[in-house]
Deep mutational scan, measured.
Amino acid sequence: MDPFVVLVLCLSCLLLLSIWRQSSGRGKLPPGPTPLPVIGNILQIDIKDVSKSLTNLSKIYGPVFTLYFGLERMVVLHGYEVVKEALIDLGEEFSGRGHFPLAERANRGFGIVFSNGKRWKEIRRFSLMTLRNFGMGKRSIEDRVQEEARCLVEELRKTKASPCDPTFILGCAPCNVICSIIFQKRFDYKDQQFLNLMEKLNENIRIVSTPWIQICNNFPTIIDYFPGTHNKLLKNLAFMESDILEKVKEHQESMDINNPRDFIDCFLIKMEKEKQNQQSEFTIENLVITAADLLGAGTETTSTTLRYALLLLLKHPEVTAKVQEEIERVIGRNRSPCMQDRGHMPYTDAVVHEVQRYIDLIPTSLPHAVTCDVKFRNYLIPKGTTILTSLTSVLHDNKEFPNPEMFDPRHFLDEGGNFKKSNYFMPFSAGKRICVGEGLARMELFLFLTFILQNFNLKSLIDPKDLDTTPVVNGFASVPPFYQLCFIPV
């Protein structure tokens, strides 16, 4: 058959498939802009700032609406009420993970971030239990974070109060905490193996944040037939998995079943207990991918939040002064901060919360999916439909947070200066898919920041009023603009 005829037939089939998918069930789905064949609503979305586009569309179609990214149908949730109703009140029905062709290629359905069903539930339950087990290797997770915080302070001392970009050092600290939990080992910041790991993690975040990856996920045929950065992403992930597998083999040879040292040991012990169960989800494949998931999810998000926190503290020296006064009063100079201190430091706690609220790190979270046909607000959402959640619409709700575009710790303080919780605080998402490392991340943010401010004054290279804190939105995360500062020993 003539190649031209084959091409026309293929394009015609794709067009018909697109029209059929977009028209099927439209009477039951939430409203939304009319999609174009094949490309859907992509032309109506700013790929570099999806969150802003969703906010604009919500003003037209309401808090629940339908979009098509290519052939992929998505239902968008915008605003606290619908997000709570879906992710919390109907948590089980909305607990699936959205379709990610690239991740599915890399992870093969294993791990904790992109798995679904029984596998996801069992691996998540085990990971939560293990991360909360403060007795691994007779050292609590808090001990590990405190140790890394001391190392971080010593690295900052080496800058000798000269101007520096904190990106690298602030990236090393949370990565080392995860390494300590998974591998029972922290690395020197100049260790070549550690630097290679950091390089792969950072490069992957840069790649994932590009519009090209959005295109690959919406048109998965590209993955096999086109060159691009997605190939580098898959190569980096394969490198990390190979490295983790080597460490798993080392653990198998040296493990003491009665004295687990780290996450890998705990997983291997669980595998041993379930070795007679042919349906067990505790396999080497799941261990390797879960460890890679924890490394990827637990490094860049925390380091970016820390980097943004220091920029905001530079911009608002009056806030920094209040935090340091609270540190001096509650902790002093002669001991290290600990998590028990947080309950006695409402202002510092409010500042950490406000940093996370203000920066809105992951504006749309990772997409969910419905696990069955769901009736939601008089609409029928078919099983498997991807759910896109606007966390921006919750964290920047102007009824809950007056002047949401302003950095103001009073958003989390009552009139008496006591810490005030808010149900709208969802930087880790909400419901059954809430970030498994939430507790660890909150511990790291509090301890790293208090250790830094206990030991250093922060000095800006320019007038604080002239510092730009506008986030650089890159399609996946909101990151701070480049800046330098000086760490002046107190």
Rank of each mutant, 00 (worst) to 15 (best):
P382D: 02
A149V: 03
P409G: 01
T34C: 13
E438L: 07
V370D: 00
Q276L: 11
Q340G: 14
M136H: 15
N107H: 09
P427M: 02
T66D: 00
T66I: 05
V177K: 02
P260R: 05
W212L: 06
P481S: 10
V145M: 08
R21C: 10
S254G: 08
F94E: 01
Y68A: 07
Q324Y: 09
I359S: 08
N204D: 07
D262M: 01
V436E: 02
I223H: 06
F407C: 00
R335Q: 06
N107P: 04
N176K: 02
Q252W: 06
S422L: 03
G296A: 11
D2V: 13
I327W: 02
F267N: 01
C338H: 09
V352Y: 04
R132A: 15
G40F: 00
I88V: 14
R357L: 01
L237R: 13
Y61T: 01
G91A: 13
L67I: 12
V153W: 01
Q324S: 10
D256W: 03
F168I: 12
D463P: 15
L90W: 15
L440S: 03
H368A: 02
E246T: 13
T305A: 06
L57D: 01
P33L: 00
D165F: 02
I178M: 15
G117P: 04
K121L: 10
A291I: 14
I327A: 03
L313S: 03
S115A: 15
M443T: 15
C179W: 12
D466Y: 09
I269Q: 08
I223F: 11
T290F: 04
G137D: 12
E93C: 13
T450C: 08
P35V: 05
E354C: 01
V352T: 06
L14D: 00
D265L: 00
L67N: 00
T301S: 13
Y308M: 11
N455E: 11
P3A: 11
H344D: 15
T392M: 03
L294H: 02
K84A: 10
Q252N: 09
P481D: 06
H411R: 10
G32M: 00
V82C: 15
L197E: 01
R132L: 11
P260N: 03
L311F: 09
K59S: 14
E415P: 08
G439Y: 10
I359H: 02
K138V: 10
R139W: 15
M74D: 00
P382I: 03
N41K: 00
N474C: 11
Y347P: 00
Q356F: 13
S393P: 03
S51Y: 05
Q484F: 05
L170R: 01
L312E: 04
K421E: 10
L43A: 09
I434N: 11
N116S: 11
T304K: 15
L453A: 09
T304I: 15
L361N: 03
R261K: 09
V177L: 09
P382A: 05
I181S: 05
S12T: 14
P163S: 09
M406G: 11
L152S: 01
I331P: 03
S95C: 07
T167H: 13
R206H: 11
T283Y: 03
P166A: 07
L306T: 03
A321G: 13
K375G: 07
V352S: 05
E81G: 10
K432Q: 12
Q278W: 13
N259K: 13
T348Y: 01
R73Y: 05
L15V: 12
Y68I: 05
G111R: 03
C435Y: 01
L313Q: 03
G32S: 02
D89T: 10
G79I: 00
K118T: 13
F168R: 13
G439E: 15
D468A: 15
C172E: 08
R342A: 13
R139H: 14
N258Q: 13
R150S: 13
S429H: 02
L366H: 05
L156M: 09
K138M: 14
Q214F: 07
N259C: 09
Q324H: 09
Q276D: 12
S303A: 14
E104V: 12
V64P: 01
F110C: 12
I257K: 12
A350E: 00
F187C: 08
F407D: 00
I19E: 06
L9G: 12
Q276I: 12
V355D: 01
K383L: 05
F412Y: 04
P409N: 02
D46I: 03
D188L: 08
A106S: 14
D256A: 07
E250I: 08
I452G: 03
R139Y: 14
L449Q: 03
T130M: 13
T371D: 07
P471Q: 15
D256V: 06
L57P: 01
R21H: 15
N107K: 14
G111P: 03
L201D: 03
C151T: 09
F425E: 02
I88D: 11
F126M: 07
K275R: 11
R307W: 04
I123H: 03
L87H: 03
I205L: 13
V319T: 08
V370L: 09
E326Y: 02
T290M: 06
I223G: 06
Q279M: 06
P33G: 00
F110T: 06
F168V: 13
K322I: 09
Q184F: 11
S162T: 13
T66F: 03
E405G: 14
F226N: 03
E281G: 11
P37T: 02
A309P: 00
K421N: 15
F263K: 01
K421L: 12
F428V: 02
D397E: 05
K160N: 14
R97K: 03
E142D: 06
H344F: 14
A103N: 09
A106M: 11
F412H: 02
I362R: 15
D188M: 09
K275S: 11
C179R: 05
D265S: 03
E444Q: 00
D188K: 11
F183T: 06
T320M: 12
G25T: 13
C179P: 01
P402I: 11
Q193E: 13
I123R: 01
G27V: 14
T290H: 01
P382K: 06
M271E: 03
P346S: 06
E241K: 10
Q484H: 10
K118N: 11
S460G: 14
R433T: 03
R342G: 06
L15M: 13
E154R: 11
P480M: 06
K190P: 06
L233R: 04
L306G: 00
D468P: 14
L458S: 03
I181M: 10
E325C: 13
I331S: 02
P101G: 12
F110L: 12
G228W: 08
A149P: 01
L395H: 10
I60M: 10
L71C: 15
F412V: 00
D463M: 13
P35L: 01
K432A: 14
L449T: 08
A161D: 08
F187W: 09
G384N: 08
Y358D: 00
R21E: 07
T210P: 04
L313V: 04
K270L: 08
A106L: 09
T386R: 13
V113W: 05
T469R: 04
D360L: 02
D466T: 11
V355S: 03
A106E: 04
R124I: 00
I462Q: 14
F226E: 03
T302E: 05
T229D: 12
T302A: 09
P37R: 01
I434M: 15
P402H: 09
G384M: 04
W20M: 14
V323F: 04
M129R: 10
S115W: 02
L461K: 12
I264M: 11
N217Q: 14
N259R: 11
E281M: 12
S127R: 01
I244K: 02
A441L: 02
C175H: 06
Q192Y: 09
R206D: 09
G228T: 05
V288S: 06
D293H: 05
P337N: 01
I362S: 07
M426V: 15
S51P: 12
E142P: 06
I112P: 04
L366Q: 03
G343T: 14
S162I: 09
I434E: 14
I327G: 01
F100L: 14
A106D: 04
K28V: 13
F267W: 15
T320V: 11
I223R: 08
P480C: 14
F94A: 02
